[in-house]
Every structure is written in C-alpha cells, then in structure tokens.
Design a binder for these strands. Structure first.
Lengths: 168, 168
DNA sequence: TCCAAACCCTTGGATGTCCTAGTATATTGC
DNA sequence: GCAATATACTAGGACATCCAAGGGTTTGGA
C-alpha cells in the first residue's frame, strides 16, 4: 500500500466489466467501488488524527453530536438515529466513552426505558480539541477541489434522500 | 433508520460547523461525512445481495479478482495490493473461502515465501452468479444519475491518485 | 560464502458494525 | 384495568479491519 500501483485498479475492474459484456453497469460499478475505497482512505486519515486523543471516529462522532446538543445530553435512541448506526453500536461507543470519563449515562426523567448520554466537562473539552485537529488536518486538506466538494454534497445528498435517510 | 429523518443530519452538521466559526471547512466536512454515510448504505445493499450466496463483500471482491486473473490464481500479497486491504484481511478472507471450498491455497513454484490463491470450479461458478446478482440488483439501480456517475468517477479518481493509490 | 535485511504469511488482540434474542418499561386497545 | 403490542437498551455472536509480533524464505552486500 506504501507504493502506488502502476495502474488504477478500479479503472481496470471497469475494463474487465466491459470485456465481459457488462458495459451497461460498468460505470456505476466503478463509481461505487471508488466510493468504498475513498471512504477507506478518509477513515484512515481521520483515525490517524484522532488516535492521539484516544478517540476513534465512532466515538468522536458521538462526542461531537453531544457537544452540539443544546443540553449536552441526548437519549441513546436519538443518537442512534442521528448517527444512523445500529443501537448496539451506540451502546458500544458509550461504554468506552464512559470508561474514559468523557460521558455519563443518566436515567431519562420521565421515560424509564430511555437512557440519556451526557457529556462530562472533560468530554466537552476533548471534543473541542479533537474537532480543531480534524478541521485543520483533514477537512482543510481534503484533497477535493472546491467545486468538486459542492458536486459531492449535491450528488450524495440526492442519493441519501432517495435511500430514505431523510425526507426534507 | 426505518423512518426517514425529518431533516438531513449532515446538512445540520454543516450548519453547526458554520455557527461555530468553522465555515471554511464546513463544506469539505459535509462532503466527507456524506461519503462515509453513502459507503455505509451501499455496503448494506451489496451485503444484502451477497448473503444468499454465503458471501460477504470482502470475500466477493477476492473471488471476483481471481476470476479476472488469466490463470485464475494470484499470490496473496498481490491480492492484498490490488484490493488495497491489509494482508491479514486477505488471510482472513482466504481462510473462509477455502473453508467453503471456493478457493485453494497452493505453494508458489519458485518463491517459498509466497502462497498462491486459486479458484476452484465451484468458486468460479459462484463468482459468476454473484456478479450477475450485483449487476442487476445493485449496479443497475445505483440511484445515481448517469452524469453523476461520471462526476463521481472523475472526482474520486483524482482523489485516489493524490492519495497515492496509483501513479498512472 | 554467509549473515543481516527485506519480504511473505499467519496468529493474536483491539475495535467497530450488524443481527438476534432477552429484559424492562410504555402505550394502546378492548 | 389489563393484556397485547411497541419501544429502549444490552448481551452474545459473527465478520471485517488494522496493528504488532513471530517464524520461514530470499536477497544482497561484506
């Protein structure tokens, strides 16, 4: 992985698709494969930046979400919905964040089924610092041209809406 | 996740970024987050299609790669490089594919360090069937407009080249 | 020639994701 | 009011990914 390949493996896959008579779906196949690979690259960068803070991307996302909540607290099911991950993934993340003293679980005042996740002061501070690091080391150097960023937001926004992520 | 959210959570995150004075990186943040979420949606679709074949995406990718190799066999390190995943991930995938009788390990004829992965007849057949299913159920209904597919291929291709995936 | 460095693969451990199932609490409908 | 249904969270298991470390094989320079 250290050394670049001589040829683009996804472009090669597309050629293979075309050679096998699947030309009609070769382009979407290439686009989807490229999304998978790009996600992998971005995730690695993000995790690299977060590692010194003792955070993973999953835990960071939860911290960031809480830091934007007016009260600094959210029900777990709400977090699961907003982060669009499985409830058990939230349970897992909260377990670890709580172990690190960054959040605490507290009972919901009126609904006995619900558990609230609340930022500790330490968690709030760490979220701020981690966000600053991501902003400067990842987002400010995304490697996408400005126009392309807009294109991505538009294209993927439409896709996500069609996939049922949101109705708006 | 079953019910669409009333608002786009990524657009909301972008607003939060702007409100906190990080307007300069709000757009790339949104684009990157959208890529992460889109990958998640696509992966779920793909795995759903592959499940009846007893395959995961990781295993399918390896099978497909082998099916396009002229000899039907590849060294493990070559597969690792082309799929751009860690060597241990290939070991893991090969273990399971071999257990299912879809590939076999064989020693490299001249290099004692290297192990070749080879498709069995059964593996070749399954790869064909799985590809046909992905073509019709995922790639042919990607949900991306044709123009957008081209945009994605272009934008992400540039990104991957800059990230060091290939030199071409 | 021969040993150190480089390379290849595997094992073991840490994380994250999802699914299924189980327990507890709310809500709904009769 | 109470049973049936729905909702919320957690426990356990299957997979995948990466990293670190270890053992075997090659290669290359002294």
């Amino acid at each position: 992985m250290a050394t670049p390949l001589p040829r683009d493996p996804i472009a090669d896959a597309r050629l293979n698709w075309e050679r096998h008579g699947w030309s009609d779906v070769a382009a979407p196949m290439a686009a989807i494969t490229a999304i998978m690979r790009t996600q992998q690259i971005l995730l690695a960068r993000i995790e690299g930046v977060l590692k010194p803070f003792g955070l993973t991307f999953a835990r960071y996302e939860l911290l960031a979400l809480l830091s934007f909540a007016r009260s600094g607290a959210l029900p777990m099911n709400k977090a699961s919905a907003l982060l669009q991950v499985h409830p058990t993934s939230v349970t897992n993340a909260v377990d670890r964040l709580q172990g690190a003293g960054l959040v605490i679980r507290s009972p919901h005042p009126t609904d006995g089924r619900t558990t609230l996740i609340e930022l500790t002061q330490e968690g709030r501070t760490l979220a701020k610092r981690a966000t600053a690091a991501l902003n400067s080391d990842v987002f400010a150097q995304s490697g996408f041209a400005e126009q392309d960023v807009d294109q991505l937001i538009r294209i993927l926004g439409t896709f996500r809406r069609n996939a049922g992520d949101f109705s708006e």
